[in-house]
């Protein structure tokens, strides 16, 4: 059994996999793990040195798919990729197609990863720093986010496109990324200071967005299942509107369903309009 650690880095894994494949080493004889190996049955043998004689030809699209699936955090993260690579290199292309058992798992991981990138683009919430602090830290916007897969590095360019010359950072419990208006600075280990800035930012204008959220909701159409399906509960605690969800559902189900208006609007005085040239009650 060959035991390897690629530090969850695709380029490292790729080099290791290339060597293994050239020596025609079977997927069941190799295992990737983080840190120390605890498998007592595994008697580690070293990775062979140099390239072996097997010359594999693989479709160009496969490499991109493996890289994307490698961002998935989960069991057999790297072994699964080697198994796919091994089968395709030996002429079985179904291993990368969704109809096959292995291919279906590969495609599922790719889908989960791109979904998580989409979650980042959708659910990151920046807090603007006050001008003095922004000047001091050279930073305009900060956000804290908890992605389920390793997508921060590959998916954050998106915010540089959206935010122009704004300087921003996104901190997560694992990694972090900062943009100074010109270049991205990615850290595999998020500096503690970044996490503090992102989690402790003051937000005097923070009430505007929850106000909008309350009022754009139509209680006559309440459907909490649909919300949870599209916006998983794990994101709610970092969303400014997250705390409102339970409250709004509760109110809607306690009888607000009859019409769509929010209680705060219904309690205000109304005004009928008399067109010019008309007078008296309509």
């Amino acid at each position: 059994m060959i035991a390897l650690d690629c530090g969850n880095d695709f380029a490292t894994w790729r080099e290791q996999a290339r060597t293994l494949l050239s020596h025609n080493i079977d997927p069941c004889d190799v295992v990737w793990a983080q840190g120390l190996m605890h498998d007592l049955l595994a008697l580690p043998t070293p990775l062979p040195t140099g390239r072996g004689s097997f010359r594999a030809r693989i479709p160009a699209a496969l490499l991109g798919q493996l890289e994307q699936a490698g961002r998935y955090r989960g069991d057999q993260r790297w072994s699964l990729l080697y198994e796919v690579l091994w089968r395709v290199a030996h002429g079985d292309r179904t291993a990368m197609l969704a109809g096959d058992r292995l291919g279906s798992e590969l495609q599922r991981r790719i889908k989960q990863v791109s979904r998580e990138a989409h979650h980042l683009h959708a659910f990151v919430r920046f807090v603007p720093l006050p001008p003095q602090l922004a000047e001091h830290l050279q930073l305009d916007l900060v956000a804290f986010h908890e992605p389920a897969h390793d997508i921060l590095h590959s998916a954050s360019e998106h915010f540089a496109e959206r935010l122009g010359r704004q300087r921003w950072l996104i901190a997560t419990p694992e990694d972090g990324i900062r943009y100074d208006g010109n270049a991205l600075d990615y850290r595999k280990q998020c500096p503690e200071q970044w996490q503090q800035w992102a989690q402790q930012a003051d937000d005097p204008d923070g009430e505007l967005w929850p106000t909008y959220y309350r009022h754009t909701f139509n209680p006559a159409r309440v459907n909490p299942g649909a919300l949870a399906q599209h916006m998983p509960g794990r994101f709610w605690r970092h969303l400014p509107e997250g705390a409102l969800i339970g409250q709004l559902v509760g109110q809607a189900q306690r009888g607000k369903q009859r019409d769509g208006q929010a209680a705060e609007v219904a309690s205000q005085g109304g005004k009928r309009i008399v067109p010019r040239g008309q007078s008296g009650p309509l």
Binding site: A122, F123, N218, N223, A226, L227, L248
Partner: peptide, 16 residues
């Protein structure tokens, strides 16, 4: 991009 969902299950993408 759907930036949020309201409890009616509708996507919030724009300031409407």
């Amino acid at each position: 991009i759907c930036h949020s969902y309201t409890p009616d299950g509708r996507c919030v993408s724009l300031l409407k």
